[in-house]
């Protein structure tokens, strides 16, 4: 009971902090936090797929990009579209793409799954570059109109040029996404997923269609990647092939997940935060960004292969838990 109260306090505290950040830190950090939140959602969506089905995607950028391009195209061509429905269109396009790929990907797993996604993400990337008339090619789609956020008859918030308003909007959408994904993993359905990952045959015998449930997780994961992409497009008022479909966009959530820790739901969020802070520090001190990031990746994977979460556990064991230490010695 006590724990629950403390938890409640923590959550309320977090919401208050998120709410007052723009007042305290100013516009620059607001942008940083939106970027963080976007990539945190992308990373969590990848991790939901990975953690609950064991499927690693090397091409998650295609859903991120589908969300971004969907939203950007909708805002550019449909006059009078509301903000939320533009995000909805982004999510829809990511989900549709996932549905199209579904029959294909439920047939494969492991390496083939990863590489298939790398290939299809590359396909999307090349299409985005080549179909200039639709996607704007190398330049992407920029400067599309951004509607205000309106609750009809109640209130209307201007989004363009007011970073603060957009910050609140983005944080609510992205925070809600994380909460929904968390909720999703806690449902009985989510628990079945864990079963599939650990022992697919058993679940099959229990009467669940393994491929169907896999497909559902796949589409859900893609949809949330789409949310992230969509918000990112509105945030930058630009969607570009390199920025949302490039291969590094696919690798980024994998790196974040690895740094934060594969096993836990919140690991990727920590990983995103750590990576962003790291990047933020590096660019202030050196031009050799590649070198520092490269070395960091190598060091992390060599010395903290379980990510931050794993690393902390190890540290705890080593320094704080004398009993386990003793046990080790005896054995």
């Amino acid at each position: 009971m006590k724990n629950k109260i403390i938890n409640w306090f923590l959550w309320v505290g977090l919401i208050v902090i998120v709410a007052i950040i723009p007042k305290v830190f100013g516009a620059y950090y607001v942008s940083l936090i939106v970027t963080f939140a976007v990539f945190a959602v992308l990373s969590v969506s990848l991790n939901v797929l990975l953690g609950f089905t064991g499927l690693l995607s090397f091409g998650h950028a295609m859903f991120f990009g589908a969300g971004g391009y969907g939203t950007a195209l909708a805002l550019k061509h449909i006059a009078g579209l509301s903000l939320l429905s533009s995000v909805g269109i982004g999510v829809l396009s990511a989900s549709v793409l996932a549905l199209v790929l579904c029959p294909l990907v439920v047939r494969v797993s492991g390496t083939a799954f990863a590489m298939l996604h790398l290939a299809f993400a590359q396909l999307m990337y090349v299409l985005a570059l080549k179909l200039r008339g639709i996607t704007g090619g190398e330049d992407g789609i920029g400067n599309f109109p951004i509607p205000p956020f309106t609750i009809p008859g109640v209130v209307s918030f201007n989004m363009k040029g007011v970073p603060e308003n957009f910050y609140y909007f983005a944080m609510i959408v992205l925070g809600l996404s994380v909460w929904l994904m968390w909720f999703f993993t806690k449902t009985p359905f989510g628990q079945i997923q864990v079963g599939i990952r650990d022992n697919a045959k058993r679940i099959d015998y229990l009467g669940f269609k393994v491929s169907h449930t896999k497909a559902v997780v796949y589409v859900v994961s893609a949809a949330f990647a789409g949310v992230a992409g969509s918000v990112y497009a509105i945030f930058h008022n630009l969607v570009s092939a390199d920025g949302s479909l490039g291969v590094l966009v696919s690798f980024q959530p994998i790196i974040n997940t690895m740094i934060g820790g594969v096993g836990s739901f919140f690991g990727p969020i920590w990983g995103t935060a750590i990576f962003q802070i790291l990047e933020e520090i590096i660019v202030r001190f050196t031009d050799r960004v590649e070198l520092v990031i490269g070395v960091t990746l190598i060091l992390v994977i060599m010395f903290a292969p379980q990510g931050l979460a794993g690393w902390i556990t190890t540290l705890k064991q080593r320094f704080f838990s004398a009993s386990s230490h003793k046990l080790e010695k005896i054995s």
């Binding site: 390496t111 997940t257 990031i293 490269g294 060599m302």
Partner: peptide, 18 residues
């Protein structure tokens, strides 16, 4: 598995570039 390889080799390619 592949995640480790991916991050290691990505790191190495960045170091080579630098």
């Amino acid at each position: 598995g592949h995640m480790g390889e991916l991050i290691m080799t990505l790191g190495v390619s960045l170091v080579i570039l630098a």
